[in-house]
């Protein structure tokens, strides 16, 4: 059964998955993705997030944002190297990432830190907060231009602008790493995943893309 390891078989299963994905309307991704933050808020209010629901909510939203960010960064490498096409959902993934970051930030501002003077003091004095805040601010223009009109109007500049997500992803991973106490695996795993997905974009990996041919054919 030599064929099982051959790229053509992988291609076939990727095509099947792509076929199934084409039938998923994009709005369902928005709808499902929008649900967890209000559900988590409800769970926190109901006592289902433990005895310190504010921190639990803040951390959960932050980690979900990081996971979505990684998923968004994985779209291009998955298409290039696995032939898996999630391009239709990339904007939804990106905008949902921004939505989770915004929820994470609002929980921190309103429920956790609570007063403006403390918020400002933290932003200027705590490097991990400064970095997190910078990542959020850098995401605003990306979220604001995640629409067809902006893509048309900005032209090639749109692609350049949206490459800012590479830097934002590193800032986000550092933000998590810097707030962790002790030597812990989880933030390092996020950082490693992000660095790997960025490395896959380098010319080194692009030169031998197995799916390149298929992409050319399909375009």
């Amino acid at each position: 059964m030599k064929e099982w390891t051959s790229p053509s078989i992988t291609r076939m299963s990727a095509d099947r998955i792509n076929g199934l994905l084409r039938r998923v309307p994009v709005w369902t991704v928005y709808a499902i993705g929008a649900l967890p933050p209000p559900i988590l808020l409800y769970m926190g209010a109901a006592g289902d997030l433990g005895v310190e629901p504010i921190k639990a909510l803040e951390q959960e939203l932050g980690e979900l944002a990081l996971k979505l960010l990684i998923l968004g960064l994985a779209v291009t490498p998955m298409r290039r190297h696995l032939g898996l096409n999630l391009m239709r959902f990339r904007r939804a993934i990106g905008l949902l990432t921004f939505y989770y970051v915004l929820c994470h930030l609002l929980v921190w501002l309103i429920l956790d830190i609570q007063t403006l003077d403390r918020i400002w003091a933290d932003i200027v004095k705590r490097p991990y907060i400064t970095i997190g805040m910078a990542a959020f601010l850098l995401m605003i223009p990306l979220a604001a231009t995640s629409n067809n009109r902006s893509v048309r109007v900005l032209g090639p500049a749109w692609r350049k602008l949206h490459r800012a997500i590479y830097g934002i992803a590193i800032l986000a991973a550092l933000h998590f790493l810097m707030l962790t106490k002790g030597f812990q695996i989880e933030p390092l795993a996020y950082l490693a995943a992000i660095l790997l997905l960025l490395a896959l974009r380098s010319p080194l990996f692009r030169s031998r893309e197995p799916a390149k041919q298929a992409m050319k054919e399909s375009v």
Partner: peptide
């Protein structure tokens, strides 16, 4: 005297739920 990564000026008592004040 702040911890370099967070302020020590205030605290949150466990048990106050989602709306616990600092």
């Amino acid at each position: 005297v702040d911890h370099p990564r967070w302020s020590q000026a205030s605290e949150r008592r466990i048990g106050g739920g989602l709306l616990a004040r600092r």
